[in-house]
Simulated scan of single mutants.
Amino acid sequence: MCFEKNCPFCNPRQDREQHIVFENETCYFLQHNREQDVLEGSGVIVPKKHHANAFELTAEEWNDTYELLQKAKNYLDDRFSPDGYTLGWNVGEASNQTILHSHLHVIPRYNDEPLAGKGLRYWLKQQGNKRGK
C-alpha cells in the first residue's frame, strides 16, 4: 500500500527491531525496541499509506487512528499500568518531525519519571523558546 522505498513506516517489517503490535485496514500500531529503554511502552500509530503529515489523512484513516488509539490504550494499560499519556503529532522540521511519514506518538507516562508532570507544552513555553523579532 505504501511505495516509499526507504521509509521505515512504509516498510515496518523490514526492521527486525520494529513490531506491528496490531493493525486495522488503514493503520498500524508499532513499537520499536530502541525506544523502550527510556520510553517504556511507547509506540506510534501510522497510516499504511504514505502521508507526509497528519493534515493529509483521509476521514477513514482518522477513524482508524482513533480505533487503534483506543486499542493501544487498553493494551498499554493492561501491560504497563501507566499513570498518564502524552500523545503527539510532529509536523515539519520546525516541530522535529524526523520521519516524513505521518505518525501519532503514544507515550505512556509514569509518576516516578524524573520528568513526570512535564508534557508537550512544557518545553515549548520556556522563555528560551520565544521568537526573536
Rank of each mutant, 00 (worst) to 15 (best):
M1Y: 15
M1R: 12
F3K: 15
E4H: 12
K5Y: 05
F9I: 01
C10E: 09
C10V: 13
R13F: 05
Q14S: 08
Q14V: 04
R16D: 03
E17H: 07
Q18I: 06
H19G: 00
V21L: 06
V21T: 09
V21Q: 06
F22E: 14
E23Y: 07
N24P: 05
T26S: 11
L30S: 02
L30M: 06
R34H: 05
D37M: 08
L39K: 08
E40L: 12
G41F: 11
G43W: 09
G43F: 09
I45N: 08
K48W: 14
K49Q: 15
H50N: 12
H51R: 13
A52T: 15
F55G: 07
E56K: 09
L57F: 10
L57C: 04
A59K: 13
E60H: 09
E60M: 13
N63P: 01
T65I: 09
T65P: 00
T65Q: 04
Y66L: 07
E67W: 04
D77K: 12
D77G: 01
D78Q: 14
D78R: 12
R79K: 15
R79P: 03
F80R: 06
F80N: 10
L87N: 07
G88V: 10
W89A: 00
W89K: 01
E93H: 07
T98D: 07
L104H: 01
H105G: 01
H105R: 08
P108R: 04
P108T: 03
R109M: 12
R109E: 05
Y110K: 04
D112T: 11
P114Q: 08
A116F: 15
A116C: 11
G117Y: 06
K118C: 03
R121F: 14
W123R: 03
K125S: 07
Q126W: 13
Q126G: 06
Q126E: 14
Q127N: 11
G128R: 14
K130Y: 08
K133L: 15
